[in-house]
Design a protein around this nucleic acid. Structure first.
Lengths: 316, 316
DNA sequence: TTGTACGCGTTATCAC
DNA sequence: GTGATAACGCGTACAA
């Protein structure tokens, strides 16, 4: 292994000059700098990040904690994770995946990115000695990054009505979570703005449940209505039911999903959806936690990332 | 930060006794061991993995390299990755995600897990100074873990014919890759065993392309045929086309997919598929690379993991 | 069985 | 602007 000393010898300077050439080149005269760079190139020197980590009291590891019972097959988290990896790349940080809550404290890390946190988990976080940041809104004053859910369904609802659908119905997920409330709120507000009566149905987040729901409720729903769905899964179920009932998409009815990860691509017809910028949010999480580490824990605030309406085959 | 010395003082022993109590407890008398453990508990001591890494010349980091242009939304890799994370958990290794080929050499790692390797990448691997292992068969003599693709399509084909389908047709992916050849081979061999004439169609790996293919070819395909597909994406397209052509599943035709990751769950009717044990393979990759690191690079061999036929709604 | 001295590769500090 | 020295936390080698 080529070390700092080897380079120093090769360049006939001290270790410190080499170290400075790497970390604070402005403090080194151009001549020496050139010498050092030449020596580094010749010996193919790569700094040992471990030794560096030791003196800096850093581990160069971020723990990526997934607390809820995540279906790890969800492409959603893959995007987030690759976004995080992207954000960590420049600083060559590594990620430690933690799914087990009692693994949080095991081993070392410089910081935590936490997804799926619930209220009753909060005590744990307060014990953490290193900075952390959440993915997903929290009720406490913690730093987080989340999708602007209200904005998403609001844009979707307005778009549907502008495109000539007479009514908009919300198909929601039957959970008591902030993201669902926010999505419903965005829909509600947009309906009220237009003096339309909102109509919300809820069911579990599975396509076949949504399918069943439409079967049961189709008679209570006016023609030329657009379904604003809280997820792509639900939207796909709605499409399937409508297609089976011989309704024409996008003429007779419209369908708009939410998420825009993977599922929207494999459906047929292709789904109009509110696409979350998950990769970007992953990247932001990484940048924010790195910043927080550098600033030894100072708050990074709460960030909402606007999703984007992607118009495809299921709306006029 | 609580260090080895702190514990030593607390327990009135030397640093080395503490170190040994942790790493070689059998070399320490029970009395001292108890003292040390008490002190560690009292001070809430956690070994500093970085300092440990420095002396051992280890980084406790594995690079997970994805060379092909992965659609990172593919749930496939998420499963693999969580499998790897699972395998690394006990040794509290971290993962560094590398998608950029020139990032391979940047920073340090103890080993590499490499997916999507092509022949022309091989020179790069030979330059690596640390152990590596592949996910996916390689033509060179490198260590790898892969699905037993032949076995998978062979089992699927045999099952279809046993269940009373008169014929089996293979819908393949239009690529020149080992996995595709292997899947075709498994089908071919099973057909020949029964003296049936194999029939293979190929197209791009998209559901709508498979759909189109069936539209065009349905007249050339006997009723009561089972479609053995090289992927779930293709299988879903086949189902969609058949459904549109008013063919009944599983009575008139059968469909069997390949992969069994996520997609098979959201399709309707639920897909019979050859399910790859991806999580398990990830776990194995982790264990193998850790073993290889411990044994300073000794070969771990080539492992094929048998996939499993999951029978659901699209076959009799 | 237990303890001492030193080294791992790097950077901060303080002289020069 | 540059270099010598100590320090980061731990483990190996050797001595007691």
């Amino acid at each position: 292994m080529v070390t700092l000393s080897d380079v120093a010898k090769e360049a006939n300077v001290s270790k410190m000059t080499v170290s400075r050439a790497i970390n604070h080149p402005e403090q080194v005269t151009p001549e020496l700098l050139a010498l050092v760079e030449k020596a580094m190139a010749k010996l193919d020197y790569h700094p040992n990040s471990i030794a560096r980590a030791l003196v800096n009291n850093r581990t160069n590891v971020i723990k990526f904690v997934t607390l809820e019972d995540i279906d790890t097959t969800e492409p959603y988290y893959m995007n987030l994770l690759f976004g995080v990896a992207r954000g960590l790349k420049a600083d060559s940080y590594a990620i430690q995946l933690v799914t087990d809550i009692d693994q949080i404290q095991k081993g070392n890390a410089d910081g935590y990115i936490i997804t799926g946190a619930r209220e009753y988990n909060y005590p744990i976080f307060n014990e953490l000695k290193k900075p952390f940041i959440f993915f997903g809104e929290t009720s406490s004053n913690f730093d987080f990054v989340d999708t602007d859910n209200r904005y998403g369904t609001s844009v979707a609802t307005k778009y549907a009505l502008e495109r000539g659908y007479q009514d908009a119905v919300f198909i929601g997920i039957d959970v008591k979570e902030g993201f669902e409330y926010a999505r419903e709120y965005g829909y509600l507000a947009s309906m009220q703005e237009r003096n339309l009566e909102p109509k919300i149905f809820r069911t579990g987040n599975h396509s076949h449940l949504a399918e069943k729901l439409i079967d049961e409720q189709i008679e209570n729903i006016k023609p030329n209505t657009c379904f604003i769905c809280a997820s792509d899964r639900l939207a796909i179920g709605v499409c399937r039911a409508l297609s089976r009932l011989n309704k024409k998409l996008p003429e007779d009815y419209g369908v708009i999903g939410f998420d825009g990860v993977f599922l929207d691509q494999v459906s047929n017809p292709q789904l109009t959806t509110v696409k979350q910028q998950i990769f970007k949010m992953g990247d932001m999480l990484a940048q924010l936690i790195l910043e927080k580490i550098k600033q030894s824990g100072s708050a990074q605030g709460q960030t909402y990332v606007k999703p984007e309406l992607v118009v495809r085959g299921t709306t006029k």
